[in-house]
Design a protein around this nucleic acid. Structure first.
Ligand SMILES: [Zn+2]
Ligand SMILES: [Zn+2]
Ligand SMILES: [Zn+2]
Ligand SMILES: [Zn+2]
Lengths: 175, 175
DNA sequence: AGGGAATTCGATATGTCATTGCGTAACTCC
DNA sequence: GGAGTTACGCAATGACATATCGAATTCCCT
Protein backbone atom coordinates (compact mmCIF):
# COMPACT_ATOMS: atom_id res chain seq x y z
CA UNK A 1 0.00 0.00 0.00
CA UNK A 2 1.03 3.62 -0.27
CA UNK A 3 2.12 3.60 3.27
CA UNK A 4 2.15 6.64 5.44
CA UNK A 5 5.65 7.25 6.65
CA UNK A 6 4.97 6.53 10.27
CA UNK A 7 2.47 5.02 12.59
CA UNK A 8 1.78 8.47 13.84
CA UNK A 9 0.96 9.51 10.32
CA UNK A 10 -1.60 6.75 10.18
CA UNK A 11 -3.19 7.65 13.43
CA UNK A 12 -2.98 11.38 13.50
CA UNK A 13 -2.69 12.51 9.92
CA UNK A 14 -5.10 15.24 9.04
CA UNK A 15 -5.36 14.21 5.43
CA UNK A 16 -7.14 10.98 4.65
CA UNK A 17 -8.92 11.20 7.91
CA UNK A 18 -12.44 9.77 8.04
CA UNK A 19 -15.01 12.47 8.39
CA UNK A 20 -18.40 10.90 8.65
CA UNK A 21 -20.20 14.09 9.50
CA UNK A 22 -20.06 17.83 9.23
CA UNK A 23 -18.95 19.52 12.41
CA UNK A 24 -22.18 20.55 14.06
CA UNK A 25 -22.54 23.11 16.80
CA UNK A 26 -23.97 20.78 19.43
CA UNK A 27 -21.37 18.26 18.43
CA UNK A 28 -18.47 20.39 19.50
CA UNK A 29 -20.15 20.90 22.84
CA UNK A 30 -20.71 17.21 23.22
CA UNK A 31 -17.18 16.29 22.22
CA UNK A 32 -15.78 18.88 24.58
CA UNK A 33 -17.70 17.25 27.38
CA UNK A 34 -16.39 13.85 26.37
CA UNK A 35 -12.86 15.22 26.32
CA UNK A 36 -13.34 16.63 29.79
CA UNK A 37 -14.63 13.32 31.10
CA UNK A 38 -11.68 11.46 29.68
CA UNK A 39 -9.24 13.95 31.13
CA UNK A 40 -10.92 13.59 34.48
CA UNK A 41 -10.62 9.82 34.23
CA UNK A 42 -7.00 10.06 33.22
CA UNK A 43 -7.53 8.30 29.89
CA UNK A 44 -7.00 9.33 26.31
CA UNK A 45 -9.67 10.12 23.79
CA UNK A 46 -7.62 9.24 20.75
CA UNK A 47 -8.55 10.11 17.21
CA UNK A 48 -10.12 6.74 16.50
CA UNK A 49 -12.16 6.82 19.69
CA UNK A 50 -13.25 10.36 19.08
CA UNK A 51 -14.21 9.55 15.53
CA UNK A 52 -16.33 6.60 16.63
CA UNK A 53 -17.97 8.65 19.34
CA UNK A 54 -18.65 11.41 16.86
CA UNK A 55 -20.32 8.96 14.50
CA UNK A 56 -22.50 7.64 17.30
CA UNK A 57 -23.47 11.12 18.40
CA UNK A 58 -24.39 12.28 14.94
CA UNK A 59 -26.47 9.23 14.10
CA UNK A 60 -30.19 9.36 14.75
CA UNK A 61 -30.23 5.61 15.28
CA UNK A 62 -28.03 2.99 16.93
CA UNK A 63 -25.10 1.80 14.84
CA UNK A 64 -23.57 -1.64 14.56
CA UNK A 65 -19.83 -2.12 14.79
CA UNK A 66 -19.44 -3.02 11.14
CA UNK A 67 -21.72 -0.20 10.17
CA UNK A 68 -19.36 2.13 12.00
CA UNK A 69 -16.39 0.54 10.29
CA UNK A 70 -17.95 1.26 6.92
CA UNK A 71 -18.93 4.80 7.81
CA UNK A 72 -15.49 5.62 9.03
CA UNK A 73 -13.73 4.12 6.06
CA UNK A 74 -11.46 6.43 4.14
CA UNK A 75 -10.27 5.79 0.61
CA UNK A 76 -11.58 2.29 0.27
CA UNK A 77 -9.74 1.34 3.43
CA UNK A 78 -12.19 0.15 6.01
CA UNK A 79 -11.49 0.23 9.67
CA UNK A 80 -10.87 -3.27 10.99
CA UNK A 81 -13.68 -4.63 13.17
CA UNK A 82 -11.39 -5.12 16.12
CA UNK A 83 -10.44 -1.47 15.99
CA UNK A 84 -14.06 -0.42 16.18
CA UNK A 85 -14.76 -2.83 19.00
CA UNK A 86 -11.83 -1.57 20.99
CA UNK A 87 -13.00 1.99 20.58
CA UNK A 88 -16.50 0.98 21.60
CA UNK A 89 -15.24 -0.89 24.65
CA UNK A 90 -13.34 2.19 25.66
CA UNK A 91 -16.31 4.49 25.20
CA UNK A 92 -18.59 2.16 27.13
CA UNK A 93 -16.12 1.89 29.98
CA UNK A 94 -15.99 5.66 30.21
CA UNK A 95 -19.77 5.87 30.19
CA UNK A 96 -19.78 7.68 26.86
CA UNK A 97 -21.56 4.98 24.91
CA UNK A 98 -24.00 2.18 25.51
CA UNK A 99 -24.53 -1.18 23.93
CA UNK A 100 -28.07 -2.23 23.06
CA UNK A 101 -27.88 -5.94 23.69
CA UNK A 102 -31.14 -6.68 21.94
CA UNK A 103 -29.87 -5.04 18.76
CA UNK A 104 -26.13 -5.57 18.70
CA UNK A 105 -25.88 -1.84 18.24
CA UNK A 106 -24.39 1.12 20.01
CA UNK A 107 -25.45 4.62 20.93
CA UNK A 108 -23.83 7.64 22.46
CA UNK A 109 -24.70 8.46 26.05
CA UNK A 110 -22.65 11.60 26.37
CA UNK A 111 -25.79 13.66 26.57
CA UNK A 112 -27.62 11.35 28.93
CA UNK A 113 -28.46 12.80 32.27
CA UNK A 114 -29.61 9.78 34.22
CA UNK A 115 -27.64 9.54 37.40
CA UNK A 116 -27.60 6.27 39.27
CA UNK A 117 -31.07 5.26 38.22
CA UNK A 118 -31.77 2.21 36.17
CA UNK A 119 -32.36 3.31 32.61
CA UNK A 120 -34.77 1.73 30.19
CA UNK A 121 -33.98 2.19 26.52
CA UNK A 122 -37.00 2.62 24.28
CA UNK A 123 -36.18 1.54 20.76
CA UNK A 124 -38.58 2.51 17.99
CA UNK A 125 -38.85 -0.11 15.30
CA UNK A 126 -40.29 2.38 12.86
CA UNK A 127 -37.86 5.25 12.88
CA UNK A 128 -34.98 3.61 14.72
CA UNK A 129 -34.75 6.30 17.35
CA UNK A 130 -33.82 5.46 20.89
CA UNK A 131 -34.93 7.35 23.97
CA UNK A 132 -34.21 6.76 27.60
CA UNK A 133 -36.69 6.41 30.39
CA UNK A 134 -36.06 6.14 34.08
CA UNK A 135 -37.78 6.73 37.36
CA UNK A 136 -37.20 6.22 41.04
CA UNK A 137 -40.08 3.77 40.98
CA UNK A 138 -38.40 1.63 38.34
CA UNK A 139 -35.09 1.67 40.13
CA UNK A 140 -36.78 0.85 43.41
CA UNK A 141 -38.88 -1.95 42.03
CA UNK A 142 -35.90 -3.54 40.37
CA UNK A 143 -33.63 -3.36 43.37
CA UNK A 144 -36.47 -4.73 45.43
CA UNK A 145 -36.62 -7.79 43.25
CA UNK A 146 -32.86 -8.20 43.38
CA UNK A 147 -32.83 -7.84 47.12
CA UNK A 148 -35.55 -10.41 47.63
CA UNK A 149 -33.69 -12.83 45.39
CA UNK A 150 -30.40 -12.15 47.14
CA UNK A 151 -28.96 -11.33 43.75
CA UNK A 152 -25.90 -9.14 43.44
CA UNK A 153 -26.27 -7.26 40.16
CA UNK A 154 -23.38 -6.30 37.96
CA UNK A 155 -25.04 -5.05 34.81
CA UNK A 156 -28.62 -4.40 33.84
CA UNK A 157 -30.23 -4.61 30.44
CA UNK A 158 -33.56 -2.83 30.12
CA UNK A 159 -34.71 -2.48 26.57
CA UNK A 160 -38.17 -2.06 25.15
CA UNK A 161 -38.84 -2.35 21.44
CA UNK A 162 -41.97 -0.85 19.94
CA UNK A 163 -43.14 2.39 18.44
CA UNK A 164 -42.35 5.86 19.65
CA UNK A 165 -44.92 8.57 20.09
CA UNK A 166 -44.14 10.09 16.72
CA UNK A 167 -44.59 6.80 14.94
CA UNK A 168 -47.97 5.82 16.33
CA UNK A 169 -50.74 4.97 13.92
CA UNK A 170 -48.36 2.94 11.85
CA UNK A 171 -50.41 0.95 9.42
CA UNK A 172 -48.41 -2.08 8.55
CA UNK A 173 -46.63 -4.12 11.17
CA UNK A 174 -43.56 -5.83 9.89
CA UNK A 175 -41.57 -6.79 12.91
CA UNK B 1 -37.78 -48.39 11.66
CA UNK B 2 -39.74 -50.13 8.98
CA UNK B 3 -38.67 -47.71 6.29
CA UNK B 4 -35.13 -46.75 7.03
CA UNK B 5 -34.65 -44.54 4.00
CA UNK B 6 -37.75 -42.43 4.34
CA UNK B 7 -38.20 -39.05 5.81
CA UNK B 8 -40.46 -40.51 8.43
CA UNK B 9 -37.75 -42.89 9.44
CA UNK B 10 -35.45 -39.98 9.89
CA UNK B 11 -37.87 -37.93 11.86
CA UNK B 12 -39.80 -40.43 13.91
CA UNK B 13 -37.65 -43.52 14.16
CA UNK B 14 -37.04 -44.66 17.67
CA UNK B 15 -33.55 -45.82 16.96
CA UNK B 16 -30.93 -43.20 16.28
CA UNK B 17 -32.98 -40.61 17.99
CA UNK B 18 -31.10 -37.98 19.94
CA UNK B 19 -31.52 -38.41 23.63
CA UNK B 20 -29.73 -35.64 25.42
CA UNK B 21 -31.11 -36.50 28.79
CA UNK B 22 -32.52 -39.32 30.85
CA UNK B 23 -36.30 -39.19 31.20
CA UNK B 24 -36.82 -37.48 34.51
CA UNK B 25 -40.02 -37.48 36.50
CA UNK B 26 -40.59 -33.75 36.49
CA UNK B 27 -39.71 -33.74 32.84
CA UNK B 28 -42.64 -35.87 31.83
CA UNK B 29 -44.91 -33.55 33.75
CA UNK B 30 -43.40 -30.56 32.06
CA UNK B 31 -43.59 -32.05 28.62
CA UNK B 32 -47.17 -33.09 29.18
CA UNK B 33 -47.97 -29.49 29.99
CA UNK B 34 -46.20 -28.34 26.85
CA UNK B 35 -48.17 -30.85 24.82
CA UNK B 36 -51.38 -29.59 26.29
CA UNK B 37 -50.51 -26.01 25.51
CA UNK B 38 -49.72 -26.87 21.91
CA UNK B 39 -52.94 -28.80 21.52
CA UNK B 40 -54.83 -25.87 22.93
CA UNK B 41 -53.11 -23.58 20.45
CA UNK B 42 -53.81 -25.94 17.60
CA UNK B 43 -50.15 -26.42 16.74
CA UNK B 44 -47.90 -29.43 16.66
CA UNK B 45 -45.13 -30.24 19.08
CA UNK B 46 -43.11 -32.31 16.68
CA UNK B 47 -40.25 -34.54 17.66
CA UNK B 48 -37.60 -31.96 16.89
CA UNK B 49 -39.41 -29.27 18.80
CA UNK B 50 -40.03 -31.55 21.73
CA UNK B 51 -36.41 -32.63 21.76
CA UNK B 52 -35.21 -29.04 21.81
CA UNK B 53 -37.63 -28.15 24.55
CA UNK B 54 -36.55 -31.16 26.53
CA UNK B 55 -32.92 -30.13 26.24
CA UNK B 56 -33.75 -26.64 27.44
CA UNK B 57 -35.79 -27.96 30.35
CA UNK B 58 -33.12 -30.34 31.51
CA UNK B 59 -30.30 -27.84 31.33
CA UNK B 60 -29.43 -25.93 34.48
CA UNK B 61 -28.20 -23.03 32.36
CA UNK B 62 -29.25 -21.26 29.17
CA UNK B 63 -28.19 -22.94 25.96
CA UNK B 64 -27.06 -21.42 22.70
CA UNK B 65 -28.48 -22.59 19.41
CA UNK B 66 -25.28 -24.26 18.31
CA UNK B 67 -24.87 -25.79 21.72
CA UNK B 68 -28.29 -27.32 21.28
CA UNK B 69 -27.36 -28.54 17.84
CA UNK B 70 -24.35 -30.32 19.28
CA UNK B 71 -26.24 -31.79 22.18
CA UNK B 72 -28.95 -33.15 19.96
CA UNK B 73 -26.56 -34.66 17.46
CA UNK B 74 -26.93 -38.35 16.84
CA UNK B 75 -24.28 -40.49 15.21
CA UNK B 76 -21.92 -37.73 14.25
CA UNK B 77 -24.75 -36.00 12.44
CA UNK B 78 -25.36 -32.62 13.92
CA UNK B 79 -28.66 -30.88 13.65
CA UNK B 80 -28.47 -27.99 11.20
CA UNK B 81 -28.54 -24.55 12.83
CA UNK B 82 -31.61 -23.53 10.89
CA UNK B 83 -33.47 -26.52 12.27
CA UNK B 84 -32.66 -25.51 15.82
CA UNK B 85 -33.62 -21.92 15.17
CA UNK B 86 -36.95 -22.95 13.70
CA UNK B 87 -37.69 -25.07 16.72
CA UNK B 88 -36.69 -22.23 19.02
CA UNK B 89 -38.86 -19.75 17.12
CA UNK B 90 -41.77 -22.10 17.49
CA UNK B 91 -41.22 -22.62 21.20
CA UNK B 92 -40.87 -18.92 21.81
CA UNK B 93 -44.04 -18.17 19.88
CA UNK B 94 -45.91 -20.66 22.02
CA UNK B 95 -44.49 -19.15 25.19
CA UNK B 96 -42.57 -22.31 26.00
CA UNK B 97 -39.11 -20.81 25.69
CA UNK B 98 -37.42 -17.48 26.06
CA UNK B 99 -34.46 -15.85 24.41
CA UNK B 100 -31.91 -14.10 26.58
CA UNK B 101 -30.89 -11.27 24.31
CA UNK B 102 -27.86 -10.34 26.35
CA UNK B 103 -26.50 -13.87 26.04
CA UNK B 104 -27.70 -15.19 22.72
CA UNK B 105 -29.05 -18.11 24.68
CA UNK B 106 -32.37 -19.77 25.34
CA UNK B 107 -34.20 -21.17 28.32
CA UNK B 108 -37.40 -23.05 28.91
CA UNK B 109 -40.32 -21.15 30.35
CA UNK B 110 -42.76 -24.02 30.59
CA UNK B 111 -42.57 -23.93 34.35
CA UNK B 112 -42.75 -20.17 34.65
CA UNK B 113 -45.73 -18.87 36.46
CA UNK B 114 -45.58 -15.15 35.78
CA UNK B 115 -48.82 -14.00 34.30
CA UNK B 116 -48.91 -10.70 32.48
CA UNK B 117 -46.25 -9.10 34.61
CA UNK B 118 -42.99 -7.89 33.20
CA UNK B 119 -40.36 -10.47 34.05
CA UNK B 120 -36.75 -9.72 34.88
CA UNK B 121 -34.30 -12.52 34.23
CA UNK B 122 -31.50 -12.78 36.75
CA UNK B 123 -28.48 -14.44 35.19
CA UNK B 124 -25.73 -15.67 37.48
CA UNK B 125 -22.30 -15.31 35.95
CA UNK B 126 -20.82 -17.81 38.37
CA UNK B 127 -23.05 -20.83 38.09
CA UNK B 128 -24.96 -19.91 34.96
CA UNK B 129 -28.35 -20.33 36.53
CA UNK B 130 -31.23 -18.09 35.57
CA UNK B 131 -34.10 -17.12 37.81
CA UNK B 132 -37.07 -14.92 37.17
CA UNK B 133 -38.20 -11.97 39.18
CA UNK B 134 -41.32 -9.94 38.81
CA UNK B 135 -43.56 -7.67 40.80
CA UNK B 136 -46.53 -5.44 40.31
CA UNK B 137 -44.28 -2.54 41.22
CA UNK B 138 -41.87 -3.31 38.42
CA UNK B 139 -44.64 -3.76 35.89
CA UNK B 140 -46.27 -0.56 37.01
CA UNK B 141 -43.09 1.48 36.99
CA UNK B 142 -42.23 0.31 33.54
CA UNK B 143 -45.63 0.93 32.02
CA UNK B 144 -45.60 4.31 33.69
CA UNK B 145 -42.43 5.21 31.87
CA UNK B 146 -43.83 3.93 28.60
CA UNK B 147 -47.03 5.84 29.08
CA UNK B 148 -45.26 9.08 29.83
CA UNK B 149 -43.11 8.64 26.75
CA UNK B 150 -46.11 7.75 24.62
CA UNK B 151 -44.30 4.60 23.64
CA UNK B 152 -46.20 1.57 22.38
CA UNK B 153 -44.23 -1.46 23.54
CA UNK B 154 -44.00 -4.66 21.56
CA UNK B 155 -41.35 -6.62 23.38
CA UNK B 156 -39.45 -6.08 26.59
CA UNK B 157 -35.97 -7.20 27.52
CA UNK B 158 -35.18 -7.15 31.23
CA UNK B 159 -32.01 -8.96 32.08
CA UNK B 160 -29.69 -8.55 35.01
CA UNK B 161 -26.31 -10.21 35.12
CA UNK B 162 -24.52 -10.74 38.41
CA UNK B 163 -24.25 -13.34 41.13
CA UNK B 164 -27.06 -15.37 42.59
CA UNK B 165 -27.58 -15.84 46.30
CA UNK B 166 -25.81 -19.19 46.28
CA UNK B 167 -22.75 -17.76 44.57
CA UNK B 168 -22.11 -14.80 46.84
CA UNK B 169 -18.67 -14.49 48.39
CA UNK B 170 -17.21 -15.54 45.10
CA UNK B 171 -13.49 -15.00 45.25
CA UNK B 172 -12.43 -14.48 41.71
CA UNK B 173 -14.10 -11.90 39.53
CA UNK B 174 -13.73 -12.57 35.89
CA UNK B 175 -16.28 -10.37 34.24
C1' DA C 1 -58.86 -44.12 -0.47
C1' DG C 2 -57.25 -39.91 -3.35
C1' DG C 3 -55.56 -35.40 -4.24
C1' DG C 4 -54.22 -30.82 -3.10
C1' DA C 5 -52.84 -27.22 0.25
C1' DA C 6 -50.26 -26.09 4.15
C1' DT C 7 -46.76 -27.22 7.24
C1' DT C 8 -42.43 -29.01 8.48
C1' DC C 9 -37.91 -30.27 7.59
C1' DG C 10 -33.28 -31.00 4.97
C1' DA C 11 -29.13 -29.16 2.67
C1' DT C 12 -26.06 -25.64 1.34
C1' DA C 13 -24.56 -21.25 1.37
C1' DT C 14 -24.11 -16.85 3.09
C1' DG C 15 -24.51 -12.92 6.16
C1' DT C 16 -23.68 -10.62 10.58
C1' DC C 17 -21.46 -9.98 15.03
C1' DA C 18 -17.39 -10.50 18.02
C1' DT C 19 -12.88 -12.23 19.63
C1' DT C 20 -8.06 -14.11 19.70
C1' DG C 21 -3.14 -13.85 19.01
C1' DC C 22 0.75 -11.60 18.07
C1' DG C 23 3.63 -7.98 16.70
C1' DT C 24 4.56 -2.93 16.31
C1' DA C 25 4.13 1.96 17.51
C1' DA C 26 3.40 5.54 20.61
C1' DC C 27 3.01 7.72 25.08
C1' DT C 28 4.52 8.15 30.19
C1' DC C 29 7.52 8.42 33.61
C1' DC C 30 11.75 8.17 35.66
C1' DG D 1 17.03 7.00 26.63
C1' DG D 2 15.09 2.81 28.66
C1' DA D 3 11.21 0.27 30.96
C1' DG D 4 6.52 -0.22 31.37
C1' DT D 5 1.94 0.69 29.71
C1' DT D 6 -1.38 1.65 26.38
C1' DA D 7 -3.11 1.81 21.61
C1' DC D 8 -3.28 0.06 17.10
C1' DG D 9 -2.66 -3.03 12.66
C1' DC D 10 -3.52 -7.36 10.64
C1' DA D 11 -5.19 -12.04 9.71
C1' DA D 12 -7.74 -15.59 11.07
C1' DT D 13 -11.31 -17.67 13.44
C1' DG D 14 -15.29 -18.39 16.25
C1' DA D 15 -20.14 -17.52 17.38
C1' DC D 16 -24.72 -16.40 16.06
C1' DA D 17 -28.41 -16.07 12.57
C1' DT D 18 -30.74 -16.13 8.03
C1' DA D 19 -31.67 -16.96 2.92
C1' DT D 20 -33.15 -20.23 -0.64
C1' DC D 21 -35.05 -23.93 -2.60
C1' DG D 22 -36.96 -28.17 -2.75
C1' DA D 23 -38.65 -32.50 -0.79
C1' DA D 24 -41.23 -35.10 2.74
C1' DT D 25 -45.08 -35.14 5.60
C1' DT D 26 -49.48 -34.11 7.50
C1' DC D 27 -54.06 -32.27 7.26
C1' DC D 28 -58.30 -31.87 5.32
C1' DC D 29 -61.87 -32.35 2.19
C1' DT D 30 -63.91 -34.81 -1.17
ZN1 LIG E 1 -40.40 6.21 15.87
ZN1 LIG F 1 -46.99 -1.53 16.72
ZN1 LIG G 1 -24.90 -18.68 40.94
ZN1 LIG H 1 -19.52 -10.00 41.99
Amino acid sequence: MAHPATYKALVESKSDRPHPLPPSKDMTQTLARAEAICRAHGVRLTRIRRTVLQALCSSPKPLGAYELADMLASNARRMAPITVYRALDFLIEQGLAHRLASRNAYISTVDSDSGRDAVAYLICESCGSVSEGSSAALTGALSDILLRAGFEPRSKVLEVAGHCAACQGHSQERH
